[in-house]
Computed example of a mutant assay.
Amino acid sequence: MINLYIFYHIENWKGLTCCDIGYECQKIDHWYSECMKVSNDIIRDNEESDDDNDAIEINTNEVSIENKDSDDESINPSVLWVIGDSTLCEFEEIYNNYYYKKYGYGTQLYHYFDKNIIVKNLAISGTSSKSFILEQSYHELIKNMKAGDYLTFGFGHNDEKREEERYTNPNGDYKTMGSFANSIYENYIKIAMERNVSIILTTPIVRRTDKSTWSSDKLHITKTKDGYEGGDYPQAIRDLGKTLNIPVIDMTVKTKELYDTFGYNNTLYLHAWKINDSSSVDNTHLNLWGSKYVAYLFTRDIKQASIDGLSEYVIDAPIPTKEENFIKNPTYNVTLIN
């Protein structure tokens, strides 16, 4: 076997740049290296060491990847737990064969926080602050909620239902048994406080009005009827926040202001439609555009509230547009409409 020479003179050398099998490259000086024959024992040793080096190289690559993502791994994100009713929840497809689908605004909050916040939405359609505690989502919350996390919730739409399993009385403070405030305090706030979880109280979003005026029920101010006492559910939340010194995001006021700005003819486009006809509008449930818009408003107020460890992670974002978000449900099936 003829020895091969590797010259390092970059400007002139155009020849071979590696040694043949059985030869090992040894540098002579800065001008060239010489391929020297090696013994079979050395070859075997090198093969064994190569096997080890293969494993080392794999591990090195893994370390390299870890180092590459070290900035992300150094972040210990906090969890924002979101609970509530259908105005926040994610809907199962089987119950969402709408031309413009239903979306709870809790499903869109993640768009407006950076990677320091993880949004975990456990809201369930049809629940009140009273009935939610019977759901698996409540047990998941209680099991996993920990110090440094945040908790927000949107109840009210179903607490006002005249049904024993869901109704809570809008009157009375957090010490009054059976009251809306007491249900929220005992089932959520008290437990969160014990775990050093930060709480953000939220009033319910309005129900859409189809005229230029607002009836009290659209604003969650109910009348006494059928043995169930009426009252002002959003105000109960506001009073609770004031009493316990907990920040309140007043989504009742925020959404009413938004709807007044749009005008009732245009708020149609914020809500779900069962079929491709505005007469089928669902005045309670938002569509994709509506849910993104409400989530946007919610997070703007979070930012302004200066909640340590949360507000600073709200990202600057444009207002969601109708053009991009008022879109037909791609899986809509007209034959399934009742």
Rank of each mutant, 00 (worst) to 15 (best):
H30C: 05
K225N: 11
I43K: 14
I237P: 04
H30T: 07
P247A: 02
G230C: 09
I21Y: 09
D260E: 15
N329H: 09
I237T: 08
F153Q: 09
W273G: 03
I142S: 04
A317P: 00
P204R: 04
N121L: 08
E34R: 12
V314M: 11
K303N: 08
L151T: 03
E323F: 09
G156T: 08
I200R: 06
E92N: 11
S306Y: 10
S125I: 03
Y269K: 11
T284H: 07
N61V: 10
K14Q: 13
F180M: 01
N40H: 12
R195P: 06
S279K: 11
D239I: 05
T331Q: 10
E93N: 14
Y332E: 00
N333E: 09
S129L: 10
D45W: 12
I191P: 00
L109T: 00
S179F: 10
I42W: 07
L297N: 01
Y8L: 15
K256H: 06
I28K: 13
C35T: 04
L297P: 01
T284F: 07
W13D: 11
S74C: 12
Q304G: 08
I94T: 01
I191R: 10
R238Q: 05
I184D: 00
I6H: 06
E257T: 15
G309F: 07
Y99A: 01
S125T: 09
N40I: 10
C89K: 04
R166S: 15
I118K: 12
S306A: 14
T222A: 03
Y98E: 00
S64D: 05
S212E: 13
K190H: 10
S74W: 04
L270N: 08
V314P: 05
V119F: 08
Y112G: 00
S128I: 10
I56N: 10
T284V: 13
N76S: 13
D45A: 15
F132L: 11
W214T: 05
R300E: 09
P247N: 05
V248H: 06
A236Q: 03
Y167P: 02
P234C: 12
D173N: 15
L122T: 05
Y95H: 05
W289F: 03
S198I: 08
N169D: 12
I237W: 02
G230A: 11
F262H: 02
Y269W: 08
K292N: 09
Y110Q: 02
H285N: 00
F91T: 00
A192K: 03
S39D: 14
K254P: 03
D50T: 14
N76P: 00
W273Y: 12
N171T: 12
Y185R: 06
D159N: 15
N171P: 01
I319Y: 07
I117S: 04
K328C: 05
L201W: 01
V334I: 15
A236F: 05
D173Y: 02
S215E: 08
E66S: 13
Q136L: 03
S212V: 15
C35I: 08
N283Q: 11
Y296L: 07
V63Y: 14
N196V: 07
G227P: 10
E62S: 12
I200V: 14
T335I: 06
P234V: 10
C35K: 01
Y103L: 04
I2F: 10
I133M: 04
K242D: 12
D51I: 13
W13N: 14
I246Q: 12
L297W: 01
V334K: 12
I56F: 14
N61S: 15
H9V: 14
